[in-house]
């Protein structure tokens, strides 16, 4: 009896810490008061509506979306062929390449951000948007390579040889046989990359500049000046967006197989 009680307690506490903040944020955003507080003072949807009226939120949301979509697509354009080459050919230093490609996952974002700023953006005088785009692409690339690699490894290479013997070129075999069979892996990589890029803070923090900020950075700076519940409302909306994406991905792709 006691052990059941204890384990239930542990589960309850874990869930409270994992999901609790989400409910607090949702509730704080529903406040009718003017300051971010929990429990909320009265109930109103006004902060959820205000989110859409703040211009900087709209701009930074657009930038974050742009980075998440095009950064991830670029990462896939680079990552799918890389994953293919790594899984099919005996490439010299293949293992080293894999490690280097995975490095952005392992190295703390704050270091990546500082390094990119100091040794890439400043010396080359890159625009902020371009710097952010390159950084997000690089950050998403490891996920693209890894997720696509795992679905390529499940695909027998003799299928491509069969396609070649039926008249395909090597590239034709890739397009007609490999791609259709790894498309759910590619989609999974896209979703994972999208979410990673969209929620990215430390690297973006270093690279954002005046007037050009990703949404999470914009929220941080908004809070430094204005301590109203709109940030909570926005956070809740973003969390909801991630949840919906992952839920749909899990339902249609069995997303958890790839991550």
């Amino acid at each position: 009896m006691t052990s059941t009680w204890i384990s239930r307690m542990i589960i309850f506490i874990t869930l409270t810490f994992l999901i609790g903040p989400f409910f607090i944020i949702v509730a704080a955003g529903l406040s009718a008061g003017d300051f971010l507080a929990f429990p909320p003072k009265g109930l109103s949807l006004k902060w959820y509506i205000k989110v859409f009226e703040v211009e900087s939120f709209r701009e930074s949301f657009a930038l974050s979306m742009f980075l998440a979509v095009f950064g991830t697509i670029t990462a896939l354009v680079l990552g799918v062929p890389a994953a293919y080459a790594l899984s099919r050919y005996n490439i010299p230093y293949g293992e080293t390449i894999k490690t280097v490609v995975a490095a952005p996952i392992i190295v703390p974002g704050i270091i990546v951000g500082l390094a990119l700023l100091r040794y890439l953006v400043v010396p080359l005088n890159l625009t902020i948007t371009l710097a952010l785009f390159l950084a997000h692409t690089a950050l998403v690339l490891p996920y693209a390579v890894r997720v696509v690699s795992s679905s390529l490894n499940n695909l027998r290479s003799d299928m491509e040889e069969a396609a070649v013997l039926l008249g395909c070129s090597r590239i034709g075999a890739f397009i007609r046989v490999v791609l259709p069979n790894i498309q759910s892996g590619v989609l999974a990589a896209f979703i994972l990359g999208f979410v990673t890029s969209f929620n990215q803070v430390p690297v973006s923090l270093f690279l954002s500049g005046p007037g050009v900020r990703t949404l999470p950075i914009d929220m941080l700076s908004y809070m430094e000046i204005t301590y109203d519940p709109s940030v909570a409302a926005l956070s809740a909306l973003l969390a909801l967006m991630s949840v919906i994406i992952i839920f749909v991905a899990e339902k249609f792709l069995g997303f958890s197989r790839y991550v």
Partner: peptide, 13 residues
């Protein structure tokens, strides 16, 4: 030339 693979190598999609 045609080749029938040991694993059949059919296209699952």
């Amino acid at each position: 030339i045609g080749l029938v693979f040991q694993s059949y190598a059919l296209f699952p999609h």
